[in-house]
Amino acid sequence: MNIIETKNLTRRYGRTEAVHGLDLAVPTGSVFALLGPNGAGKTTTLKMLMNLLEPTAGEARVLGVDSRKLGERERRLIGYVSENQQLPLWMTVRQLLDYCRPFYPTWDRELEQTLLGRFALPEARKLAHLSRGMLMKAALLASLAYRPKLLVLDEPFSGLDPLVRDEFIKGVLEVSEQGDWTVVVSSHDIDEVERLADHVAMLEEGRLRLSEPTEELQARFRRVEVALGESAAQLDGVPSGWLEVERAGRNVRFVDSQYEREATEQACRERFADATVTAQPMSLREIFLTMARVQRAERKEAAS
């Protein structure tokens, strides 16, 4: 069951295509990370999901409803926090919470108090006088206290110091573990997302490069090092899943994007007789960077 589904979702700004034919599915209950470099189309995608922007083509369904028809009923089930969101800065933290509360029948005052304490937010201080980190925490609190079914976080970690990030992530994780919540978080800060996400999608230049559970992704990506014996290295015709293949002295290194221990070792032995194969797991950051480099090289090649 997917809480978000998009079909050929496209958004153009004049001649620039910010998002191109996106087919995305966010499983209910997942913590779904939308990764990509700046300008990849993450924020545009989330804005289309939230009906802040209208798609040029295609459609998105959120909570089973066309995103263009999200009404009060659906929005009561959605929380949205964005780095650029305009908050009513003239309000105090208390006034913000008092203003938001009546819109949500499911508002949990106990949770509100717990999070206020956890985030150490000064209730009487105006939002305008809060630091950026505090402001993001206040926005998060105003989006968590009603236990939304879907929490959308757009670049929530930008500009936050490590301590605040940690508090922020802990807050999200803690609350999301308490119920059947779905969290969609867009970020280019892969290290932080890695702690959160159980599903990952990667966007580049408005196109979806991959979308799968984090565990599966990390399981199929390995940095492989082949220590060659006396035999010569045959680097032509390597499997398409081998990325960034390079030779350094008596070693061949590559990233296997379709790693399966036996199959990879078998493939290595077929090319490099008496070789020793070692495979290292990769972090999301390494996977992301590898894919980004490969895609850049492919584009360069296609252009030339």
Partner: peptide
């Protein structure tokens, strides 16, 4: 697209 109310059930 950044208005606070736009993302609230209003």
């Amino acid at each position: 697209t950044m208005g606070f109310w736009l993302t609230r059930p209003i």
